[in-house]
Amino acid sequence: MTQVTHAGEPDQHTGGGLSNRLNWLRAGVLGANDGIVSVAGIVLGVAAATADRGTILTAGVAGLLAGALSMAAGEYVSVSTQRDSEKALLAKEKWELRTMPDAELRELAEIYQEKGLPPALAMEVAEALTKHDALRAHAEVELGIDPDDLTNPWQAVAASAVSFVIGALLPLLVIMLPSPIRAPLCFGAVLVALAITGAISARLGGARIARATVRTVAGGALAMAVTYGVGHLLGVTL
């Protein structure tokens, strides 16, 4: 019989469809964050080594394309694996409903009892839902899965790849400004963008916004400082 673990317990406040939308929205925010940091590190490192704008642009565009494709591939593999797991869980639930319907009915009633319903009412609800659509009732309550709205890997691919490109364009465009202080401008613009993505990511995940924002900004600043320092050393050496 399917056991409900704490990690797999469905969200009592959101349905499967909303959960999936939040998943690809989080993928988009993380993609933008990665695009900002990755390309900022590349262009700042190259800018520290050379003032040639063509070289900087080439490196930045190459990093943008490579990063976007890498993000898309990674998301596709990850989310496809999740979708396969959801299908396997649904198949198992179908088998249990077919081979042990009485035990599954009691299990569903027990879940509603745990949610606060009296035993008689819990059984009545379980019977009504089982009669209407047994698989959906068990899938949503036990697994947190909407059988008609499984995780879509292509949504995650599009969200992460597009958001990576959008995030990467910020440092790439700023570093190409005809300004003697373009590196500091790029550094500052990236920190502001990271503060925004960090706050959005924390809000979507229900974490403390201040802590998540500081962590995101500090990590990005460290990455840019290291790549700029390495680029400067290589530029002086070469």
Rank of each mutant, 00 (worst) to 15 (best):
T2Q: 06
T2P: 14
T5E: 06
H6S: 08
H6C: 01
E9M: 05
E9C: 05
P10H: 06
G15S: 09
G17W: 12
G17C: 09
L18D: 01
S19Y: 09
N20S: 07
R21F: 10
L25W: 03
R26H: 08
R26K: 06
G28T: 04
G28E: 04
G31Y: 02
I36N: 06
V37K: 04
V37L: 03
S38G: 12
S38L: 10
G41E: 02
I42M: 07
L44D: 00
G45W: 12
G45A: 07
A47S: 15
A49Q: 12
A51T: 13
G54H: 06
L57P: 00
L57C: 11
T58Y: 11
A62H: 09
L65T: 09
G67W: 05
A68P: 11
A68K: 14
S70I: 00
M71D: 05
A73S: 14
A73M: 08
Y76K: 03
V79H: 04
T81G: 09
R83C: 00
L89W: 04
L90W: 01
L90F: 02
L90C: 05
L90T: 02
A91E: 01
K92M: 05
K92H: 06
E96R: 10
L97N: 08
R98K: 15
L108F: 10
A109T: 05
E110T: 11
I111Y: 11
I111E: 03
Y112C: 14
K115G: 14
G116S: 07
G116M: 15
L117G: 00
L117R: 11
L121P: 00
M123C: 01
E124K: 15
V125K: 07
V125A: 03
E127W: 03
A128K: 12
A128V: 02
L129V: 11
T130I: 00
K131W: 07
D133K: 03
L135I: 10
H138W: 03
E140N: 07
V141A: 04
I145H: 03
P147H: 05
D149S: 03
L150D: 02
L150G: 02
T151G: 00
T151F: 01
T151A: 02
N152G: 04
W154H: 06
Q155A: 10
A156N: 13
A156G: 06
A158H: 04
A161Q: 03
A161D: 01
F164C: 09
V165D: 02
V165A: 15
I166W: 01
A168F: 04
A168S: 14
A168G: 13
L170M: 12
L170K: 02
V174G: 00
M176D: 01
P178E: 15
S179H: 12
P180Q: 11
I181N: 13
P184I: 12
C186L: 11
F187Y: 06
G188R: 08
G188C: 03
L191T: 07
I196L: 11
I196Y: 06
A199K: 14
I200V: 13
S201D: 01
S201K: 14
A202P: 06
G205T: 09
G206E: 13
R208H: 11
R208N: 08
A210Y: 14
A212V: 12
A212W: 08
R215Q: 10
R215A: 11
A218H: 10
A218I: 15
G220M: 02
G220E: 11
L222P: 15
L222H: 10
T227F: 10
T227Y: 04
Y228N: 05
G229I: 13
L233Y: 05
G235Q: 07
V236E: 08
